[in-house]
Design a protein around this nucleic acid. Structure first.
Lengths: 231, 231
DNA sequence: ATTAGGGATACGGTATACAGGATCCTAAGA
DNA sequence: TCTTAGGATCCTGTATACCGTATCCCTAAT
């Protein structure tokens, strides 16, 4: 079913049309996140274009988009490379994430509908199942989905557009550093705070969760650096 | 091992080279902010390209960039138009701005150097002079510069890249709604809070300032809507 | 007036070309 | 042997030209 609740007069605009540049961007982002292109990899326009069977143009536009999302860094006349996250980058990522996720959580608490809350509960169930069955991949996915959903509950479009790429990078980072550790209890408690409708409580939990998360990542990074001393 | 941070021999790589796309983007952004292209204006690639004497490519890339900054909206296969800020957009802008400016202010309080603080004080002086001489344009510029500087004091690169486009849109909005009202006392007090080094105090002032600002813009918008009832 | 055609327009994408910066390789020189 | 100059090569940045097709706009017929 393509069209969604459209306005009376509006006819049938091929709603799920997506420009090629967007599909290419999504593909490349996925490859970066999946570590097909590890940090430092050069992204050569002609190569990617040939490989994906498209022209250079959509590839260029994709790369620019990923640049603005922070996944790649471009040096004029030299091209794009997959970003390496420095320690400072990570800290900044958490700083901003923390501030925005608190906001998202507050707004979610006051704005989420019952139907939305049900959906999020469903995701938590998925996480629980994945946890029980020891399916790390599914658990990771459920965790990511959980954050995305909270964000949607805020009903704040700008917040979503700003925070989503940051979450993306965070997830990317987590996949680099290790496997999805157990966040189930944390997420559950946070969710209940939101569901309670108290912005204050929701903010408190968001903050706690973000800080806990930051600590965990810090430890993982420290370990990694220990294992692989100065590149 | 390839050479990175090479040093001694590092010859000057044309540091201030700027890709055409960036210059076009800056030019277009300026035109939007200056109301040369009022909200709703269609941005036709070929027109702009011809007018600026460049090919369609850099123009396309510029438009995409402005899209990700929120200045234009593009509808697939229809092209880009200068964004109209809805009431909700404005509220969201302030929501996010508020959260991030509080963070910026906190970090500025703990990280700003004496030299930086001096520079900001200089901007405040400029604002004071502009205020005294009744130069509204200079006052507006000083106000914008003040916010930009506070942001830099945070020493948080990500925060700057995220918040800057939002500030840009806010300034744009302010120019649409009216003239720069007197923020001097507000800014001064806020600045002193930052200079005091207390993150808590700085956060408090940032929040207060952001909220005051929001109220003012709300009033201006309400007035405007009164003057120009439903388009 | 309303509606249905039927261009005209402009986007989205492809293909091609080319200048010049960046990089790499190699061979000559210290 | 190590360094360095030089040229070959790669790749980006930009320009052109061109096509398909979705949209828009104007006009004419009902």
């Amino acid at each position: 079913m393509s069209r969604q609740a459209d306005t009376p007069g509006s006819f049938d605009i091929d709603a799920d049309y997506k420009p090629l540049r967007d599909r290419v961007r999504d593909e490349l982002r996925q490859r970066i996140i999946d570590d097909v292109y590890p940090p430092g990899t050069r992204l050569v326009e002609t190569e990617i274009a040939a490989q994906l069977g498209v022209s250079r143009l959509p590839v260029r536009e994709s790369i620019r988009a990923l640049e603005s999302e922070g996944f790649v860094r471009t040096i004029p006349r030299r091209g794009a490379v997959v970003a390496e996250l420095s320690e400072q980058d990570v800290e900044e990522l958490f700083d901003v994430r923390e501030a925005l996720e608190v906001l998202a959580s507050q707004q979610a608490a006051t704005r989420a509908t019952k139907a939305e809350l049900r959906r999020v509960r469903g995701i938590l169930d998925r996480a629980r199942k994945a946890l029980d069955s020891g399916d790390r991949v599914a658990l990771g996915e459920a965790n990511e989905a959980f954050h995305d959903e909270i964000l949607k509950l805020s009903h704040n479009v700008l917040l979503q557009t700003v925070l989503e790429p940051l979450q993306g990078r965070l997830h990317w980072l987590l996949r680099q550093t290790g496997d999805p550790y157990d966040l189930f209890e944390e997420h559950s408690a946070w969710f209940e705070a939101i569901a309670s409708g108290s912005a204050e409580l929701a903010a408190e939990h968001a903050l706690r969760h973000a800080r806990l998360n930051r600590e965990i990542v810090r430890k993982l990074l420290a370990e990694r650096q220990h294992r692989a001393p100065s590149a």
